[in-house]
Amino acid sequence: MTVNSEQWPEMILKPVGLVRNDIKEPMLKAGEQGLELKIRIEKIREYHQQIKGMMSELVINPEFTDLLKGIEEFSHIIVLYWPHLIDPARRHNLKEVHPMGREDIPKQGIFATRSPARPNPVLVSIVPLIERRNNILLVKGLEALNNSPIIDIKPHSLSYYGSETPSVPSWMEQIHRELGN
């Protein structure tokens, strides 16, 4: 079955806010040959643990402050954000990558990975909500870069997003073990 994309409606996304934190550079870079790890592989676990403990501020545009009413009653939120430093030409050319830039793991299709280099690079993270201060949400463990545009925020609830027993391929289990997840 083919899909005629000319019939699809135009999509326009506008940021609702920005991420503020100390992450200035991505861990992965979309290069000519796929994803390139910008830190030594031995340092990945240390980097990941640092991120898990890092605080980020989600600075929501003041015009959307009223939309945050009640969010502080949730322990976790889902943050959808845009990886703004990825070159659009690079992300459109990548079809398959070694997950996390690791050549010891066979190439996978982009949709089978959590790669930030994708046709529509919408990234999603579930993070603990620590505090709300008017239009600023303080969260822990968000891997977004400083100044990443926030597309949306949703409350996290297992009854909506939980899966009873999700399965993942062995290469992803290996990555999770190595990162201490």
Rank of each mutant, 00 (worst) to 15 (best):
G17S: 12
I86Y: 06
Q33H: 05
F111E: 11
V122G: 02
H84P: 01
Y81P: 09
H76I: 10
L123W: 00
S148I: 02
S157A: 15
P116S: 07
N61E: 15
I78N: 09
E173Q: 13
R132Y: 00
H176R: 12
E63T: 04
K140G: 07
P169M: 05
I130H: 06
I136K: 12
L142V: 06
V97N: 12
T113L: 06
N21Q: 05
M54V: 01
A30K: 00
Q174K: 10
V79Q: 08
E36A: 05
V168R: 11
E32K: 14
G141W: 04
P26D: 12
G162A: 14
H76P: 13
P169Y: 04
K38F: 02
G53D: 00
E73Q: 12
A117Q: 09
I126Q: 11
S157V: 10
T113Y: 02
N135V: 09
L37F: 11
K107N: 03
P62T: 08
I78W: 04
P9D: 08
L13M: 11
V97Y: 07
E32V: 13
I71G: 03
I110C: 02
V127W: 01
G109C: 03
G180S: 09
H84Q: 09
P155I: 07
V79H: 07
T65H: 02
D66Q: 13
P155K: 06
P119W: 00
H84S: 09
G180V: 08
T165M: 07
G109W: 10
P166Q: 08
D152T: 02
N146D: 15
E164N: 10
D87Y: 06
K95C: 04
S170W: 04
I71Q: 02
E178P: 04
L137A: 07
A30R: 01
M100T: 03
P62E: 15
L18C: 08
V124H: 04
D87A: 01
V124E: 06
H76Y: 15
S56C: 11
R114V: 12
L179K: 04
E173G: 07
I136P: 05
I12V: 15
K52L: 04
G180K: 05
K69A: 14
G53S: 05
Q50T: 10
I130W: 01
L80T: 01
S167L: 10
L35M: 15
Q33V: 05
P166I: 08
T65C: 07
V127M: 03
I110L: 05
A112C: 06
N120D: 12
P88W: 14
E72C: 06
S75K: 15
Y160F: 14
I12C: 10
I78M: 13
E46K: 15
G141M: 05
G34V: 10
I105W: 06
E131D: 11
H92K: 14
L28I: 01
N21H: 08
I175V: 14
L94H: 11
E6Q: 13
M1F: 12
G162W: 09
S75W: 02
I86M: 02
R102F: 04
R114I: 11
Q7Y: 08
W171P: 09
E10Y: 03
E96D: 11
I39A: 11
E143M: 04
Q49N: 14
I44L: 15
E178F: 03
N21F: 04
P99L: 09
L142S: 09
Q174M: 07
S75A: 14
G101C: 12
L80F: 10
K14Q: 14
G34Q: 13
